[in-house]
Design a protein around this nucleic acid. Structure first.
Length: 798
DNA sequence: CGACGGGACGC
DNA sequence: CGACGGGACGC
């Protein structure tokens, strides 16, 4: 493909060296550009200097060599199972899919790669592969001198002084390049930002992407790796884009993001809006890994209904974007990166070339993982009425990746055994392996269990419901709170750290049934369901209403809502604090244990990732990497004196109060914590949040917002506190500042017969539509809490 | 029931 | 050392 002339590459290389040298010299402002008054000597530079970071997880950043099936926490989105990126895409992959360059993935050990990607030197993207001359050794690679971010939605009038400070908050900016037309000299509305490390870059992405509108801008900035960077960094170049329909038109990207957060790292969320900026009720969510994407589909499609909607979400891989008139051919001439028809699979390139359609990433295995299950096996699946997978996936695309990817991943996890799930799967999937991995996370026994189906009438093949659905069924009971929690964990490798609570190890037994599960979750909620079913097979009485058994039992460990919210918070915090503290201590040792345990059976790479992840995270959250553990991550990301003019960040700065963690309740009814900045999810409350909450207590004893609405509800149903932090958190974007989204999933607080929704979802705008469902909702609550998702199985409607 | 924004490499 | 034609949808 478009390979540049040798000369170009050489130039790049040279430049690279220069940059690297600059780094070494810690030249904070390599470019003699007009020193912004905002960017002068960041005192904390040392803390954030690359060197420092490396110290933290030097061996760490090896995106290059380690195939983190699971994006390490702070890692840029994710890793894409490489799959080499052979050309061949026919489909017009939207320019958004993958990098335009359709480059190759770096040498990732992962799955077999059909088309051996060109050596790094060749990988040279049009836009520079700075390390071309440095060989491909991880060390060198790791020693990359910079990471370039592309920033879109930059007003053409913006100046470096205006934009730099913004990014300076996330790390030391090596360079700001406002792109302008060569001829006219007019700015093009975008720019490039260079950081020395991908950690900083990631941070910037998470902190700013879609969250901050530059003065004069019409939309929040778009921050992403520049074309070619992702590949270069080994983070993959493909994105798995999901189409999401039946969204409440009032929700924001942020909220959607949180709904999908539990399933993995997202690259982007885009809601379709009309000319008036009004949501059209659908949008796209890009995941960086297929596993995540699939996990989201399985868990949400046809299952999760947002309040105000009478239809459950539709979640499916997006169709290839329709090229706009006059648009050049398919961008990445050759199907974006990441997909190569397996030499042996004989899969049609067309299918394989579209990352959105599960294709053979690993490039081996039966080409029919998906198809088979759509029609009959999976049946229209939970999404029955909603177009099952059937029509979405072309018959031919084989999702070999499923088998390979998760498989190895599991291996990495060390606690999942395929065998366990093995034979259980019905012949449903032509590729039992695949199938079970994603669709039969419930023990065969429970799967077969008819107890399940009662609730889901709409589906043709009850036994193949995706886990989530089943979950709902069984969720009705909830005896094994801890277990269930353990069973499902956030996508972070780090989860292991939370072992103390999640009981990762013990849960393994459970896992066996759910073994092959999306990476994010060592085990899916289904496990819970399974258990629940066993306990009380036909007891879902309580959920007759919504079929959302989940609701009630959802809160395995309902916080004891004391009459006084304050009291509640206090006790809660105390507990959390204690817990988190301990957990943090145990965490490491646990991890180590895991390492030892796993090591033999797996490539230790993933593990390293885990370590990295945990470290990264603490570093990120804390102002000072090294002290992160002890120091509440609540501190602001940057103590840099440089204060962006009107930067919202500046405003937040004064008070060391900020926590990007928010509590949510996943569709399966479990509480989880999501960090909107790192985009990390956890099942256990991060100590940062605990601390943050604690801190919030002091100043403002009275949680301002939402009070009214909360009061409207019996004390118990009171949602947790959340107002303060969220505001801070979303200060950037207008769209985010409105609602304290945290409440999103906060419903289910184990309220009597009241369903979760009823209890905690104030009620959006009382969609009096479907009487049935609506009726159940608690009326009178305040609409302000926009997030009122109702939980109900698709069957709901009737 | 809704299907794709908007920008891309300066010295 | 070259770079994308031509048709365009029904369930």
């Amino acid at each position: 493909m478009m390979e540049r002339h040798r000369g170009d590459r050489d130039r790049d290389r040279d430049r690279d060296y220069r940059d690297r040298d600059r780094d070494r010299d810690r030249d904070f402002h390599p470019q003699p550009r007009r020193p912004s008054r905002f960017t002068d000597g960041p005192p904390d530079e040392q803390n954030r200097s690359p060197g420092n970071y490396r110290g933290g997880f030097s061996s760490g950043r090896r995106a290059f060599e380690s195939p983190p099936r699971q994006p390490p926490v702070g890692d840029n989105g994710g890793f894409y199972p490489p799959a080499g990126g052979p050309p061949g895409g026919f489909w017009p992959m939207g320019g958004e899919v993958g990098a335009p360059e359709g480059g190759f993935v770096n040498d990732l050990p992962g799955p077999p790669r059909p088309m051996p990607p060109p050596p790094p030197s060749v990988t040279g993207q049009k836009r520079g592969f700075p390390f071309s001359g440095r060989g491909s050794s991880p060390e060198h690679f790791d020693g990359k001198s910079f990471v370039k971010l592309f920033v879109g939605s930059v007003p053409r009038t913006v100046t470096e002084q205006e934009i730099r400070p913004l990014f300076e908050e996330q790390g030391k900016v090596l360079e700001v390049a406002l792109i302008k037309d060569k001829r006219t000299g007019q700015q093009q509305g975008c720019c490039f930002i260079k950081y020395a490390t991908s950690e900083e870059a990631d941070r910037a992405i998470r902190a700013l992407h879609n969250q901050y509108t530059l003065p004069g801008g019409l939309a929040p900035v778009q921050v992403r790796y520049a074309d070619g960077e992702r590949e270069r960094l080994g983070n993959g170049a493909v994105e798995y884009k999901l189409f999401v329909g039946s969204l409440n038109k009032l929700v924001t990207e942020k909220e959607v993001e949180e709904i999908f957060a539990p399933y993995g790292r997202m690259e982007d969320v885009y809601l379709m809006r009309d000319e008036r900026k009004q949501s059209r009720g659908c949008g796209f969510v890009k995941f960086s890994s297929k596993d995540s994407a699939m996990a989201a589909i399985n868990a949400l499609n046809g299952i999760f209904t947002m309040r105000g909607c009478d239809q459950p979400l539709i979640v499916r891989f997006a169709d290839p974007k329709r090229p706009r008139a006059g648009e050049p051919r398919a961008g990445p001439a050759f199907g974006g990166p990441g997909f190569a028809p397996s030499p042996t699979s004989g899969i049609r390139p067309a299918a394989a070339s579209n990352p959105n359609i599960p294709g053979p990433i690993g490039g081996q295995g039966p080409p029919n993982a998906w198809q088979p299950m759509s029609p009959q096996n999976l049946g229209p699946s939970p999404s029955a009425g909603i177009h099952g997978f059937g029509n979405q996936f072309p018959p031919r695309s084989g999702d070999t990746a499923i088998s390979s990817t998760p498989g190895s991943h599991l291996g990495a996890q060390g606690n999942l055994t395929e065998g366990s799930v093995g034979g259980t799967v019905s012949a449903a999937a032509t590729s039992p392996h695949n199938f079970k991995q994603y669709f039969s996370q419930v023990p065969p026994s429970s799967q077969q269990s008819q107890h399940i189906s009662p609730l889901q009438k709409p589906l043709e093949s009850p036994q193949h419901f995706p886990p989530p659905l089943q979950l709902h069924q069984g969720a009705g009971t909830y005896t094994q709170a801890p277990t269930s929690q353990a069973s499902m964990r956030p996508h972070n490798p780090q989860t292991g750290v939370q072992a103390p609570y999640s009981q990762p190890f013990p849960s393994q037994q459970l896992n066996s049934s759910t073994g092959p599960v999306p990476p994010q979750f060592n085990v899916q909620p289904s496990a819970t369901a399974a258990m629940a079913l066993q306990h009380r097979p036909n007891a879902p009485s309580s959920m007759t209403n919504t079929h959302m058994p989940t609701s009630t039992p959802q809160q395995p460990l309902p916080y004891q809502q004391s009459p006084s919210q304050i009291t509640q918070m206090l006790s809660q915090q105390r507990q959390t604090l204690q817990a988190s503290f301990q957990s943090s201590q145990l965490a490491f040792s646990q991890l180590q244990q895991q390492v030892q345990m796993m090591q033999p059976s797996m490539q230790n790479q993933p593990l390293q990732q885990n370590f990295q992840a945990s470290r990264q995270q603490s570093q990120w959250t804390g102002a000072t990497p090294t002290t992160a553990a002890s120091a509440p991550a609540v501190a602001l990301p940057s103590e840099s004196p440089s204060t962006p003019i009107g930067s919202a960040a500046a405003a937040a700065r004064p008070a060391p109060v900020k926590c990007n963690w928010t509590e949510h309740t996943s569709p399966d009814g479990h509480k989880y914590y999501y960090n909107s900045v790192t985009r990390e999810s956890r099942w256990v409350k991060p100590e940062e949040l605990a601390l943050y909450e604690q801190q919030q207590q002091k100043p403002a004893v009275q949680p301002p917002l939402n009070q009214p609405s909360l009061q409207a509800i019996p004390n118990q149903q009171v949602t947790q506190t959340q107002p303060p932090q969220f505001q801070t958190q979303y200060r950037h974007t207008e769209q985010f500042q409105n609602p304290p989204l945290s409440s999103m999933y906060q419903a289910p607080r184990g309220v009597g017969n009241m369903t979760a929704q009823e209890a905690s979802y104030p009620q959006l705008q009382a969609p009096p539509s479907s009487g049935n469902d609506i009726a159940r909702f608690q009326q009178g609550a305040q609409p302000q809490a926009t997030q009122d998702w109702a939980w109900k199985s698709n069957s709901g409607g009737t």
